[in-house]
Write a protein that binds this DNA or RNA. Sequence first.
RNA 1: GGCCCCAUCGUCUAAUGGUCAGGACGCGGGCUUUUCAAGCCUGCAAUCCGGGUUCAAUUCCCGGUGGGGUCACCA
Length: 556
Amino acid sequence: MDDIFNQIAEVVFPESLPDPNYFEELYPPRNLSASAFVTRIAPSPTGFFHIGSLYTALICKLFAHQSDGVFYLRIEDTDKKREVEGSTNLIINTLLRYGLKFDEGPDKYGRELGSYGPYVQSSRATIYFSFIKNLLQHGKAYPCFCSPETLDELRVKQQSSLSRQGYFGQWAVCRHKTPEEQLQELKTGKPFVIRFRSEGSFEQKIKVADLILGTRELPENDQDFVIMKSDKLPTYHFAHAIDDHLMRTTHVIRGDEWFSSVPIHLQLFKALKFEAPKYAHIAPIQKKVGNSKRKLSKRKDPEANIEYFDAEGYPKQAILDYLINLMNSDFEKWRNKNPNEQIELFNISFERLKKCNGALFDFDKLNHISKQIIAGMTAGDLYEEVLKWAKENDRSFASVLVNNADYAKNILSIERGETEKARKDLIKYSDMKEKFMFFFDEYFDLNKKKKEQILLHNGFDLNEVKKIINEFIESFEDGDSKEVWFSKMKEIGNNYNYAESVRMQKNNPHLFRGNIGDMVKIFRILLSGSTQTPDLYSMIKVMGRQRVISRLNLVS
RNA sequence: GGCCCCAUCGUCUAAUGGUCAGGACGCGGGCUUUUCAAGCCUGCAAUCCGGGUUCAAUUCCCGGUGGGGUCACCA
């Protein structure tokens, strides 16, 4: 190797560094079958978990586990300006909460699982240095002393001359300095970055094979892109090449905003003498804004943040099901047949992913899925989930739920049983309070006046209402079956000219003032404050004699 | 602007060189029901535009349009 390059490398990295081969041996190829996928999710700790990251993570995990491979987590914390304290734990917690357990990666306690770590990029400096030093020694990279201001000026100049932008060819000032000049400048202690010396030509096309996009032609990279920033941290491009090679990733599955960087990455893999992984670029989930679409934005769209769905009380499974359905629309058929099956058993494929071209996030669809999932839960499980949600988002509701645990479970059991006709009025856990709060005396605050107002508003005569209620209380027995109870109601209805059934009323409209449904409204109103409630018989059962009578009695 | 990607109901999508272009969500109507939520039945609704190739194009090719991505010491 050239002595002058060696000197440059020594000035940049005076410390003694292991040879790149050391790492090759430290991280040997994985002992997996040839068809196994090694995938990773590699988020940046910016204090925010994007729904798109969850989508990508799910795809990665599914592919890995469907092939008996490995799915791991890597934290890409090379941008210290954007880093937010506590983000790594947020990422880990979110993945685990959504059942995306990773086989390798950092854990909450600062330890790591797996033997291809460290899995946090800021802890991998020695590794990056070793490879960069090697590149420097071979003249494949060089120090660049251009300041950000200089680069801005360059950009302006290129723009006004309608030239292609970037640090390449004749524009790459530092590239053309002699090694001796570079060494001299380095010794002055001036800030610098390390750039890759690109031998590519923009006129040359290269074929890029992508598992989702297919084989495409892209111009070769001719930019002398930065591989090490002035803070000595690697850029994404460089870290990607080193990490995914050394961690033996087989499939890099990531957002399609990376697609146009593939020539850079391929170039890097080649220069480093690494075998390139397979790539799969997926279209992001989008949102319609006016006439155009855009990626879900951290800034503008609350639903871009996974925490939004947790705060709203969406079941995790609903989010997962929704996302998988986006990957492969056959999922909904499969889910219908296998309502309780683990999603891992559903197969996804690149073939199907090819058809996804940036779906618009659809709340209606999510809500529908969510509703089905809640309808499929037992009252006990639902209670636990609602309670868990309330503890984190509505403390006072949580204490009401705790203080009335059995009552709350009974409420949730209404029209929910072995029959498939479960109530479907809850979309998310937070709906329970809104829909069923009237059951709880803590929230039910209809005074006599309000009740009377509602009754009058619905066209009832208050004196008659009192009589009907008295008749009901007299005849009502705790042990009444639904049939017995209902026939008693019909009997009372008869006394006041309410038809026993809609049909009866329709057949002789002039004989009746209304049907049993109209009369029953009285009870709905007094017990709940609303004319729209779950099944009345069940409500009465759940509320219990005491509460029913006291709510009815308020009027007399 | 350069380079790249994409294009089926409002949304997610299925399918094929010949189909009544299918399903799901949403929306409308009906039935059922003690209200509501459901459930069942049913309706409306799409192959971006223009050229080719072909007996036949939504499907293949070209052009246009539209949308998206990317061009940092961010990932």
